[in-house]
Simulated scan of single mutants.
Amino acid sequence: MAENHPVIIVGSGHAGLQLARNVRRLQPTSGLVMICADDGVDYAKPQLSHAFSQQQSAEQLTRKTAQELRQELKMMLLTEQRVEAIHPAEQTIVVNGRTLAYSKLILATGARAFVPPVAGDASDDIKTLNSLQEYRHLRERMMQGDRVLVLGGGLIGTEIAHDLAVAGKQVSVCDPSAQILASLLPEFAAQRLAETLQALSCDLLLNNTLEMLQRLPQGLRATFTNGDAREFDHVICAAGLRPNSELAAQAGLNVERGIVVDSQLRTSDPYIYALGDVAQIDGRLWPFLQPISQCAAALAKTIAGEPTHVTLPVMPVNVKTPRFPLQLAGETRAADVDWQIEQDADSLLAKAYRDEKLVGYIAGGTAQMQGLALLRQLSI
């Protein structure tokens, strides 16, 4: 019977591990299998945005090895193995050529870094920073050469650029938008963060994209759409993420931007769930730790036989740029709000109102700690 088979989690990132830990608290002896394509170590992924300036090795960022996770969670953890196919009708998956049966299957396959197409013989030299393994490789490479181009001025790109600049690198940030963090911040707040980066000698190449990357005897030659050409030693792409939903699509599950799930994180198949960066909830992707943790706690209850709906409140976004950190929540990009702004050399506190109701805020610098109080006041 299918109910006698284990729960199988595909993916060992934050989503998969949070779910496994919650399952174990509720079901200490149930059958549990986790499958991952990497070495399965537990590490704090957000710390990758600070690791260069803190001179941390990959080993220092590791919290638990795969063997330690096996012991902690009393589960079968299959590392460096890939799920090749899902057969929903049989409730089985194929892993490295062998078939495993499941009672419930959870897809926590995460997302991969998107690298836009770039002409030139050095396009393969564009690196990403989306895993501990990639950080280990990048850290070794970047021991040589200080000129770094970061593609993408969004949340991750800005944090990486800030960290590299603090670490003493010569950093340029390229983004097609007219400002950094264009999807999160209004222009006045983006400008404050831009000034912080520029004070760290970051060069902002906005309204611009990388068109060609060519190898030189020493370094790389980058040509941009505005006609400029510059030389760099390294190029890191942080231009966004793409959910790893191909496996679900091949199995016939409903996939749009990510794997479509209902309020219990169930996919279009009653025995398959999705969680984390790959899950599309109410038409949105939620690639942040707090909502993922809340989803994992709810899904563990559902798996344990207590159907639980996920309710995600308004959650803050933290921009981890220590020289001028920001917290924001609510409608920070709406065009029909009135901003009340207080700022000085060390702080920024901006409140967005609509019909005299607080609908968003931005708290930066020394005012960042006021964010949580404002979060409770939001009328959304």
Rank of each mutant, 00 (worst) to 15 (best):
A2R: 14
S263T: 12
I259N: 10
C237W: 01
Y102E: 01
G252E: 07
L19S: 10
L73Y: 02
A279H: 11
L138R: 06
P117W: 07
L184K: 11
D163T: 09
V255W: 06
M369K: 15
A167H: 08
Q340G: 00
A238W: 06
I126N: 01
D344V: 06
P117D: 11
A113C: 06
L349C: 10
T267Y: 05
L326V: 05
R98E: 11
Q170I: 12
D124T: 12
S131G: 11
T366V: 10
D355A: 15
L138P: 02
A222F: 03
I259K: 13
I86G: 08
V41G: 01
R112N: 13
S245R: 14
T209P: 00
E342I: 04
A178I: 06
V260G: 00
A345D: 13
E159H: 09
V115D: 03
L372N: 13
V33N: 03
Q133T: 12
D203T: 15
T92H: 06
T209K: 13
V337A: 08
L210N: 06
R70E: 12
V115W: 07
D336I: 06
R323A: 14
G365L: 13
V10P: 04
R24L: 07
P287T: 09
Q191F: 02
E134A: 14
D203K: 15
V148I: 13
L372M: 14
P117V: 08
L299D: 03
Q264R: 15
I292F: 04
A167P: 09
P307N: 04
A248G: 12
K169P: 01
N318I: 07
S49F: 00
T65V: 03
S263Q: 14
I236G: 11
V118Y: 02
A108W: 01
T109F: 00
Q377F: 02
Q214W: 01
E211P: 01
A51E: 05
V83S: 03
R257K: 15
G305H: 10
P287M: 12
L372F: 09
L348A: 04
S183K: 15
L197S: 02
A85I: 05
L265T: 02
T158P: 04
V115M: 11
P46M: 12
T29W: 02
F52T: 05
G240S: 03
M76Q: 14
R24C: 09
L184S: 10
R221K: 14
I272P: 08
D233V: 08
Q370M: 14
L19D: 03
A178K: 12
